[in-house]
Design a protein around this nucleic acid. Structure first.
Lengths: 246, 246
DNA sequence: CGTGCACTTTGACGTGGATCAAGCTGGCGC
DNA sequence: GCGCCAGCTTGATCCACGTCAAAGTGCACG
């Protein structure tokens, strides 16, 4: 919630708006975006917006992890997206948030107020095209996840989730090879269950099973080491190169 | 595959490109789009494109139903979208099709070659914005479906599918009230199963159960009559107004 | 250095939907 | 009119995952 007071120029730590949204912007457009942006941070567990709420900003994740989820009246919930650093949040042209957005870990967003952003979009054709690109990527990810939810076994679901997170982590720190990957799981067992359409007990059992079978190594409850990424991918049911977010 | 030879002006039957894609186009842009468009038709069961294929057109469905689906190596398949009349197919800026697209019933598409369409998009800012809108709608539909796949029971899944189709049918023929809805199911039990992440036997049993309970009436195997739409919606597990594609 | 509490693991048991296996039904070609 | 066959239904059985219950773990706080 608090404004971090980052210098607007201090974007070594914020690859977001320049490269992700506006890679082809001219200098003056870049400067306009720069001048408009501001930061917000949220603590782990804090809601960012509720489904149906008015949402007057768009932005992207600088650090941390946020989740998008939908709930049924009786309490069943399904996570429909996971926002990792560089992912975009919000939708130009739409006032109401379609999902609950919650900070899973401590999270910093780089934001723009929606109205001026929309105005800018109208004046900058490739901004709209860039947003379209990003939305198509989200759509592909959502549909890939439909396959996971509809057709995969519990073990394959867990492996798919770990593979996605491992890939994302690797792309954020590309200097390391893809052997000996390791990362801190940002999700509780319950959050994993909500993403995978399982119960937390089933998640726990399958994580234990993957550990027992040597596919993953646990260091504490959250730190995951993946000794052989290909072995993990083999557990997902996907063909080797076609996988999720390929 | 065959060109139907429809008159390019004959767009009473083709509400697609004018209103869906280009509602705000100026007259000359409209004329340009008109001149570029052509029709293709496919018979029930025919593939339109395979996943990974080069796809040199974009378009939308004029009549019929097509499906988007993904397959795993071992044959498990998940339908990730259903294209009904007025739905858009294809993605500007991307050469490769990400899913298998199959004509479920006899289908007619209104197409544009991709390259000139992209050029036009670059020159016509609101075309890109309109495409973004449509893609966001698809994204919402995909995520709504993730809730169906991840958290609903077989009976709720069937009810959700019937409710979606009934709503779409009603919006195509809005003169009829929403009591006494009826329509021909365009999908086989197997296709329904692929969409819902079930087996065809389970689909058959749950359809029978909904019939036994008076939620739906079957006239033959394909014609569905819905005596009370609200009763159907009550079976979906959604809250009354929040439902899929709300 | 306990005590509390959120998170996780593990066990025992139940069940919804998958699987396997017959039939049935209705449209179409001959 | 008859046979064929794709699509559908129904039954019997199985098993992956859910449910309920009880410990275990480790970090934060006194």
């Amino acid at each position: 919630m608090t404004d971090l007071g980052f210098n607007a120029k201090d974007c070594g730590t914020c690859p977001i708006q320049h490269r992700a949204v506006c890679a082809r912007c001219e200098t003056d457009e870049l400067a306009t975006l720069e001048a408009m942006k501001y930061y917000r941070s949220f603590e782990a567990g804090q809601p960012i917006v509720w489904s149906g709420d008015r949402m007057d900003f768009v932005g992207s994740v600088v650090t941390g992890v946020a989740s998008l989820s939908q709930a049924m009246e009786d309490g069943r919930t399904q996570m429909v997206g996971l926002l990792l650093p560089s992912d975009f949040l919000g939708r130009p042209g739409r006032a109401a948030a379609p999902y609950d957005v919650v900070a899973v870990t401590n999270t910093t967003l780089c934001c723009f107020r929606r109205k001026p952003f929309e105005t800018m979009m109208g004046a900058t054709p490739h901004l709209a095209q860039r947003l379209l690109e990003m939305t198509l990527d989200e759509l592909d990810a959502a549909r890939e996840w439909m396959l996971v939810l509809g057709r995969k076994t519990a073990r394959e679901k867990i492996a798919s989730l770990l593979a996605i997170i491992a890939r994302r982590e690797a792309s954020l720190a590309p200097e390391r090879g893809q052997d000996d990957m390791s990362f801190d799981l940002p999700l509780t067992r319950e959050a994993m269950a909500d993403y995978l359409g399982l119960t937390l007990e089933t998640v726990s059992r399958q994580v234990s099973a993957l550990k027992r079978d040597g596919v993953i190594v646990l260091d504490g409850k959250r730190r995951i080491v993946i000794p052989d990424f290909d072995a993990l991918v083999a557990e997902t049911g996907d063909d080797v190169d076609g996988g999720v977010f390929a």
